[in-house]
Write a protein that binds this DNA or RNA. Structure first.
Lengths: 206, 206
DNA sequence: ACCGCACGCCGATCTTGATTTCCATTGTGC
DNA sequence: GCACAATGGAAATCAAGATCGGCGTGCGGT
């Protein structure tokens, strides 16, 4: 059940970086399961097999710990999206790849996507900023492609980009909960077809 | 700034239902501004011009107050969506109307949509249940239409429905933040066209 | 192989902030 | 004029984040 099978040798001494990594893993488990507010520093420490003060020797406070984790996964998401769009120059393929990036992201071990897509701290400025960055940057990249392909105005392309990212995000999350009823490949292609048909008919369709 | 202009006649006696309504208004303001956790019962009471015990005579606790408010707006959202789909039998018009429902909903006074779309309590069971209901029911209605129109399987239609709802929700929220750059009508039609083109080309497009 | 140092670790505690409740007071309808 | 209900200020309660001083272990120098 725990990320590291070496659960609680509550006496082992670890080099600093190894310990830090272990703390991040434990924190991710707890934050993902309970969200930020319901997560207790006590439990994170216990899950990592250390005491609370150790936690505070590695991170300034609960928010700092959360942000470190959040940055990791926001970067991950944005990178996946960027690489998907760069993986080909055929725009139809690009749509397919980008949608796939979202489905891959939510499939990632530990359901870490919840930190980015379902954070219960969006009201706190630094968190909101990071979460919106993941949406904005993905949408920005996509809107670039849309502008080239359709000749929309910048504002319109941005709105479309945001909408498509939202579609991908929400459908990927839903697909994950109904696991088994539709294989990932099929789901990805289904949504990609929806998106592509929607975009491609744009420049002069009434 | 306050919802009720009659701000603080801190001595007026109100009939029970009027008082309750006033408390709900005040609570909505505070919950929307700060989210659930950062909202203080103190401030809600003060904003309504009463003292805390009064609040607890109308609602069992903070969560109960929040749920009462949430139910109101979840019902509102689902109803708007249902009425949009029932407003016509032409599926293209239906898409337009449904997307419009989301844009209308986020334009509602007080940005109350944040309670449904950006709740920081999704990890609490009764809240999660209600929030997901708004997504599920909207998506269910839409997937019905999609099934009739395209002959997709039920699973596929559901996934598409969820994706479209996600698209509408996220794009509507984004449109609201960038207020002014695109008029609501234009934004709605833009997203509706994207959705409609996407769906309509479905049954036999490879 | 031995000694001393430095560092990572722990149990117990402090502090803060928010929800929830209690009692004296004030104003109201009969 | 009187009983009653509602109100307000203040206090009890509680959970969780953050901290303090000492302990034990592994490592580098001799």
């Amino acid at each position: 059940m725990t990320a590291s099978p070496d659960a609680k040798p509550r006496g082992t001494r670890l080099p600093r970086m190894a310990r830090r990594r272990q703390l991040l893993d434990a924190a991710q488990e707890v934050f993902v399961e309970n969200g930020y507010h319901a997560a207790a520093m006590d439990e994170i420490a216990e899950r990592a097999g250390v005491s609370k003060p150790v936690l505070y020797q590695h991170f300034p406070n609960k928010l700092g710990l959360y942000l470190a984790l959040l940055d990791l996964h926001v970067d991950d998401m944005v990178t996946r999206c960027r690489e998907a769009l760069a993986s080909t120059t055929d725009n139809k393929q690009r749509v397919q790849a980008a949608i796939g990036a979202f489905f891959d992201f939510v499939s990632t071990q530990g359901e870490a996507f919840r930190l980015v897509f379902e954070s219960d701290l969006r009201n706190v400025a630094p968190v909101r900023q990071r979460v919106e960055r993941s949406l904005q940057e993905s949408a920005e990249m996509i809107s670039q492609v849309i502008q080239e392909d359709t000749g929309c105005s910048s504002d319109e392309a941005h709105l479309l980009g945001v909408g498509l990212v939202g579609m991908a995000e929400v459908s990927a999350r839903y697909w994950l909960t109904s696991d088994g009823s539709i294989p990932k490949e099929a789901a990805t292609q289904l949504m990609a077809r929806l998106a592509w048909r929607g975009i491609s008919g744009f420049p002069r369709t009434g």
